[in-house]
Design a protein around this nucleic acid. Sequence first.
DNA 1: CGAGTTTGACCCGCGC
DNA 2: GCGCGGGTCAAACTCG
Length: 244
Amino acid sequence: MLNQSLMEDHHQVGLSSSQMGFYLNSTNLTSFSPPLVLNHQQQQSDDLKPLNNFLPSSFGLDHVTCTLTQALLSSTKPRQQEDYLSSSFTNNLPPLFSPQKPTPNYNLWAAWGEGKEYQLAGSKRGCNGDDPILGVSTVKMKKMKARRKVREPRFCFKTMSDIDVLDDGYKWRKYGQKVVKNTLHPRSYYRCTQDNCRVKKRVERLAEDPRMVITTYEGRHIHSPSNDLDESQGGQPQLNNFFW
DNA sequence: CGAGTTTGACCCGCGC
DNA sequence: GCGCGGGTCAAACTCG
């Protein structure tokens, strides 16, 4: 079920594959330079070519129409907005949601963040012993800094749903919640519970339209989904090759 | 009792 | 250099 008003605001997209998310990979995610603003009038122009860098030919780019998702971008800082290219599409079945459970209305949006590597600035404090001011151990400090070294590629969905946490087949553990400025709804932070899997996701509701849930995935799973979706689905073993 | 959630404190990046 | 805001940690808490 699509929200008609939203579909009028944005340009509908027809895709040839229902497995959009699974086709993307981190290498391709870094192959374009945002910002890139597209609309239906530009779909035949050169502006659309960068999409070919990371969308498989099976998508049938002739039918792809892109638009900048203003609502999504307005929820991030200006600098972060440049990291996003968003693509709107509708389809029979969103790729990351289980058909076994009540799924949200299929009004789905996707955005790809550019993968960037951030080098750490030099330490502001001494390297020996505990922090003299805060009493935080050096080990802890190093640990906290190390986690910020690399920003994984991000993959962002916007869905219309009453449910905050959508079932994507993986098991998540909540590790934080934060009230974001100028929004009524808090942002929740989740981490994949699988050992050695560093994938994270952020879930928040759109300030302009609380019916919309923005789910941002960061990183790539190094394992297959943890629930029994694969077994029950049958016929889709190839999905295990795409650990989004 | 173990797994998951909540929540306040803390750190870092960034803009001014 | 300073302050703000986002992201993460970890102790306390809850739940099955």
